[in-house]
Nucleic acid binder design. Structure first.
Length: 262
DNA sequence: ATATCTGTTCCTCT
DNA sequence: GAGAGGAACAGATA
């Protein structure tokens, strides 16, 4: 799941379940996602600390404690946070934090494609990794300017985390569906007005997804995402089957009726 | 057994 | 150099 809205849900989940709790024990079940941090250092950094705040930027979630380095999490293709009232960690857990109240927060990521890192400086971290401004936290004019740093297909530009952070395959399909634009449209062929509409659509889609707590069944019928993955998915607006094409190497849903031609 | 999948990075070709 | 496509990473699921 993890695109911007999902990570936003994880952030709110972490805040609700784990903020202001002292970490009694840290366990690392699988060290493959650890990026530039050893198991001992991760444990030393977190044990005895209290989670004080969280911040999302794009698809990254940063968890700060009352100690020094900040924990940086990327959920890859399959990651999520799971809080339990006992000490058991689910299958596919990367690491888990046991709090003094006996509850556990686990990063569960079966496919292990995400990242666990530490950083002293979140801004520097984002810069090093060439992560652009958060897609929802950037003002209109800059959003347009960022998209215009690319001249190829609009879907590729929007999925590029260096252009804008947070939009992935599904979010981009949803925003282009909402704005009636074909994913293969060249950025140079878009008006500023159309790019602004994409920004508004991304905000709206995110709100709906967060409201649904990232559950597909909780989404309005009118959204593409509600139908994505169904066998004979039809455009809820035009009632015609979606085209499934490849754009930027990713499966892309397009309504042949209202999303024009490329 | 084969194909697909919400992300990212690296490689090749144009 | 920029853009596009493919492969690889890993594991679950159809």
């Amino acid at each position: 799941m993890p695109e911007l809205p999902h990570v936003q849900v994880f952030k709110e989940y972490a805040d609700a379940t784990s903020l202001h709790k002292r970490i009694e024990d840290v366990r690392v079940q699988d060290d493959r996602p650890l990026d530039g941090v050893s198991i001992p250092r991760l444990k030393k950094t977190l044990r005895g600390r209290t989670l004080t705040s969280s911040r999302r930027h794009g698809k990254w979630l940063f968890l700060a404690t009352d100690g020094d380095p900040v924990l940086a999490l990327h959920f890859g293709m399959s990651g999520q946070l799971v809080h339990t009232t006992d000490a058991k960690a689910p299958d596919g857990t990367v690491f888990s934090l046991r709090f003094v109240d006996g509850s556990t927060l686990a990063m569960v990521m079966p496919r292990m494609l995400g990242k666990v890192a530490l950083t002293e400086d979140v801004e520097a971290f984002l810069e090093e990794r060439e992560i652009g401004p958060d897609a929802l936290d950037v003002e209109e004019e800059r959003f347009v300017r960022r998209v215009r740093t690319r001249s190829g297909m609009v879907k590729t530009a929007l999925m590029d985390q260096g252009v804008l952070a947070g939009l992935g395959n599904e979010m981009v399909d949803e925003t282009l569906f909402m704005t009636g634009l074909h994913p293969r449209t060249k950025v140079d062929d878009l008006s500023d007005k159309e790019i602004v509409a994409i920004r508004r659509a991304a905000k709206e889609a995110t709100e709906r997804i967060v409201e649904a707590r990232a559950r597909r069944e909780g989404l309005p019928e009118s959204m593409l995402l509600r139908h994505r993955g169904e066998k004979d998915a039809k455009c809820p607006r035009c009632k015609v089957p979606f085209d499934r094409i490849k754009v930027g190497g990713r499966t892309t849903y397009v309504c042949p009726e209202h999303q024009g031609a490329s």
